[in-house]
Design a protein around this nucleic acid. Structure first.
Lengths: 248, 248
DNA sequence: CGTGTTATTGACCAACATCAAACTTAGTGG
DNA sequence: CCACTAAGTTTGATGTTGGTCAATAACACG
């Protein structure tokens, strides 16, 4: 990680405001309080870890740019537990848990900004509504992981992959980080396989099938979609669990 | 559900104190505040639902006696997301989320006690430490679901089943609801199959295999274990994610 | 004793993993 | 700009795990 201490720079905190605003309605003074948070910016290369399972944290990490994922290694095999987008604070739960139960790594080159727990606590103390907002953030996160859990247990590989695309798209859209036309999920098939609990070979065949039936279309190096309704139907996707203020 | 309003009865709230105490250290005055919470007791038959996906709640449910589970129905198939033990408040997240993203049902005949959100909020306001405790409760819950997610994605059926036994045992032990000798998990194979994401037939064969290799032993109608080390090893179980104050 | 639920078995098939090799693409240094 | 390299993707062949269907056995309960 290459670190670079920063003065308080408003654009970074705005990411956080934007992220929280996608799932709740911040008041003007709450947003203002967030913009005062001292941050320390770090650049990450793809596949670099932010934290590892077992560590104890005194700061949490705001994703500013890029794509992070939570993961666990089980008997040498990696399972990706969730995917995180700019505006997320993926390890916020470390505010109240002693030890990380998963690792957090970058899927693409990314920028994160660390926020010390003491500053989060102070901000919550001065704006109690932010306590609810942060708590809600961790709860939405849990709801997303529940959806993945149900997916892994009971959905076919086709549905699982389509569902992942739906979820990420809906979340990006809710924070105005994509338009309907240019969406593509910049994950390698290896990573996506670990996210949906398949082998890389089988994931590849699943994607080919989705491509053949027009659900996914190649967008440069990665895949996106052209027909939202079709994607949503093959995924059996209902965005309610995302608790977004503005769902697709 | 057969309802029966209750006067403030200390033994019920003690369940909650006991549950929270297994993952955090409550102060005397926090425990005292919890014991003042007004509750309304309800008895459930096995397989009765407490709430359904999509509902909005103004009260949460403390499990007093029995066994509850979260579940989702995906394309007609049920996936159990977590198992809840006396002292848990499984739908606590409804305090900050608008709509249930899962259903909550009884696996065995159970007793629950509803707590109105307004009373929870008032209690937190008077004892801010309880805000952290409840938040932590929802976070531990999320960590447990992450462990299930990783299990479904990357563990064999043998390991998955053994892991479920380990988890429930560790959680029961941490709140003194079992001793080492008499533990048995009172779930039918049908329910357990839905919990570990297998078909009922295959789960049956998995259990037989675990039984043949001495990992599980029949205890009356259900199964338990005799050799904790063996169980733990076949499950590759590490209780850290449970965030218990006292792990096995 | 029935009767309904749960557990068990066998036969068969589909989904998915693994292994190994070939092919593509993006990025690198000359 | 081209060869070279490493990473990612695609393909084929083969074996394993786990699902489905259907029938039977074992309980639990009234």
């Amino acid at each position: 990680m290459s670190a670079r201490r920063s003065a308080i720079s408003s654009s970074l905190q705005d990411r956080l405001v934007n992220g929280l605003n996608s799932i709740t309605r911040l008041t003007r003074s709450e947003a203002q309080a967030l913009r005062q948070l001292p941050l320390s910016v770090v650049s990450l290369e793809a596949y670099e870890d932010v934290v590892r399972e077992g560590e104890s944290l005194t700061k949490s990490c705001l994703l500013v740019e890029g794509l992070l994922c939570r993961y666990k290694i089980i008997a040498g095999k990696r399972q990706i537990l969730s995917v995180h987008l700019p505006g997320d604070v993926p390890d916020l739960q470390s505010l109240h848990l002693d030890e990380m139960d998963y690792s957090l790594g970058a899927l693409t080159a990314s920028t994160v900004a660390f926020i010390r727990h003491q500053h989060i606590r102070a901000t919550i103390a001065s704006e109690p509504g932010l306590g609810a907002a942060f708590w809600r953030h961790t709860l939405v996160d849990a709801a997303i992981e529940r959806a993945w859990l149900a997916s892994l247990g009971r959905r076919s590989s086709r549905e699982r992959v389509a569902h992942l695309y739906c979820e990420v798209f809906a979340r990006l859209l809710a924070r105005n980080l994509t338009d309907r036309e240019s969406f593509a999920l910049p994950m390698t098939q290896i990573d996506m396989a670990d996210a949906v609990g398949l082998s890389q070979v089988h994931l590849n065949r699943t994607i080919q099938e989705l491509r053949r039936s027009g659900v996914l279309v190649q967008r440069g190096r990665y895949y996106g979609f052209e027909d939202w309704t079709l994607l949503q139907e093959t995924a059996d996707f209902d965005p309610a669990y995302l608790n977004l203020r503005q769902a697709p």
